[in-house]
Design a protein around this nucleic acid. Structure first.
Length: 487
DNA sequence: ATGTCC
């Protein structure tokens, strides 16, 4: 294995390639999307992991890493890998993440900072009371384990039927909030046990709920922003980031064990890192995991749907009018930890690919199937959550995204370990500093807050710049935090 | 990410 700096090739301002000669077993080159600055800061683990991914059976074109990439479990966070399922392609939990359907939802209001500023503490405090956060938190939706099996099969559609949201929310959720083919018979009792009381909860780590403002100077494409519902300067929006909680975690754990048992003995697959455990997509084990994983997707859509219901209730209480009057419409809800069967052109031929996106956001361009009717001609909204101190972005998918299987970044991407961040910042002081800078934060854990300090992340503007220059997504509007609830 | 080690 040669020295990485000597072998890495710069393809363009934002694309870097590690050829198959780098490591024995690589089936395709690895490509990293980043500016020169981001490359200098890139976690060395990314090169090792993305080239390991390049050895997996069925991988097509490239093993990819997005500009916010960093070291993860098996795959880098920011990893994208498309497996040809008709050519022995595998499915790998490490390419999806433990938190199945970790994702983002963005909601607009017709309020501006002028309306909200004076109420920000009250709003954040009330949201903190009503949206359970932190490790092991449980929700207010009291259902049986049997009913929970319906939730994981029906996703957000279960929520709407039970009064947690509006019919139109479904049109603005990926897969209409319910992915087809989820079957809870593939789910362990243990996963059900961990999940049945966690609907409507935020979780911990980098999961959060944020009140944000679209500042006048941060509209990059005002017309597109308006199409997505952000029509005026200083408009207030709510963005939140969470996943499938203990449920998804247990699904991933269960199937990693299954895959480790059969991978080599039954399928003859040898991998460089046991965290890349996988099975052929077209195998009983691969199909069982795919089906179970879909239950995780649905749990997460339902989770975010119930959280939205609570957010609408709180705004409605504080501003004394119902959420319809406050214009609290969903812009979009999109996963960034998932694997989906999609058809993509590969060297002029349309192929059936299982696209793993792990800390990477699907970014479908204009006129593609699965983009909501409302946005068909402009492309899919892409929601990128930055750190609590800096800001977040609403982007849109573009036609040139074909190069990355229509995938882009998902966030800032950590640049410092949680351990080091805890030593560098003090949660309580950070909270006060941020309050002085106009960002009011509530958190369940001071140490957890320190781990999420803005300085522990890459610069979000750099990440977005790289994604835009590379032509894998386009800026619409930047969103700045004024209030935040952290797990 | 995660009942942050059954």
């Amino acid at each position: 294995m040669a020295n990485i700096e000597q072998i890495i090739q710069q393809i363009s301002d934002t694309v870097w390639e590690i050829p198959v000669s780098y490591k024995e077993g690589m089936r395709v080159p690895a490509r990293i999307y980043a500016t020169e600055k981001l490359m200098r800061e890139m976690d060395d683990g990314v090169y090792d992991q993305v080239t390991n991914v390049a050895t997996l059976p069925g991988i097509t074109k490239y093993a990819l890493c997005m500009p916010d990439g960093h070291f993860g479990y098996g795959f880098p966070i920011g990893g994208v890998a498309a497996m040809d399922v008709e050519a022995g392609g595998v499915i790998s939990p490490g390419g999806i993440g433990f938190d199945i359907n970790c994702g983002m939802r963005l909601v607009v209001t017709n309020l501006t900072y002028k309306d909200v500023g004076a109420y920000i503490k009250k709003l954040v405090d009330r949201l903190y009371e009503r949206v359970p956060a932190g490790v092991g938190s449980t929700g207010f939706v009291k259902i049986s384990r049997q009913e929970f099996r319906q939730v994981v099969e029906q996703g957000s559609q279960w929520c709407i039927r039970n009064g947690y949201g509006w019919e139109e929310d479904l049109d603005l959720t990926e897969e209409n909030g319910c992915i087809e083919g989820a079957d809870s018979s593939k789910i362990s009792e243990k996963a059900i046990d961990r999940g049945f009381n966690q609907i409507g909860t935020l979780g911990s780590g980098n999961h959060y709920l944020e009140i944000q403002v679209a500042r006048k100077q941060d509209f990059f494409d005002p017309e597109l922003a308006a199409t997505f519902g952000i029509t005026q300067p200083d408009q207030v929006v709510v963005m939140f980031h969470c996943g499938s909680r203990g449920f998804g975690h247990q699904v991933a754990t269960d199937y990693l064990q299954v895959f480790l048992k059969v991978m080599e003995s039954k399928y003859g697959i040898k991998i460089l890192d046991r965290e890349l455990a996988c099975a052929p997509f077209n195998s009983p084990e691969g199909q069982a995991y795919f089906t179970a994983m879909k239950c995780g997707l649905n749990m997460s859509f339902a989770n975010r749907q119930v959280i939205l219901h609570r957010i609408r209730e709180v705004f409605s209480e504080i501003f004394g009018t119902d959420a319809q009057d406050l214009g609290m419409r969903v812009v979009y809800d999109i996963a960034h930890n998932t694997a989906k069967l999609e058809r993509h052109m590969v060297d002029g031929v349309e192929r059936n690919l299982l696209v793993h996106r792990k800390g990477a956001t699907r970014a479908f361009g204009p006129n593609m199937a699965d983009v909501p009717q409302k946005y068909q001609t402009v492309g899919q909204p892409v929601i990128i959550g930055g750190s609590m101190e800096t800001g977040s972005y609403l982007l849109v998918g573009v036609s040139s995204g074909e190069q990355s299987f229509f995938s882009t970044a998902h966030g800032s991407g950590r640049s410092m370990s949680r351990t080091k961040a805890r030593k560098t910042w003090q949660g309580e002081k950070l909270q006060k500093d941020l309050e002085n800078r106009g960002i009011y934060i509530r958190s369940t854990s001071w140490s957890g807050l320190a781990e999420e300090a803005g300085g522990a992340y890459k610069n979000i503007d750099d990440v977005i710049e790289a994604a835009e220059l590379a032509g894998i997504s386009k800026k619409v509007v930047r969103l700045s935090p004024i209030g935040n609830i952290k797990g």
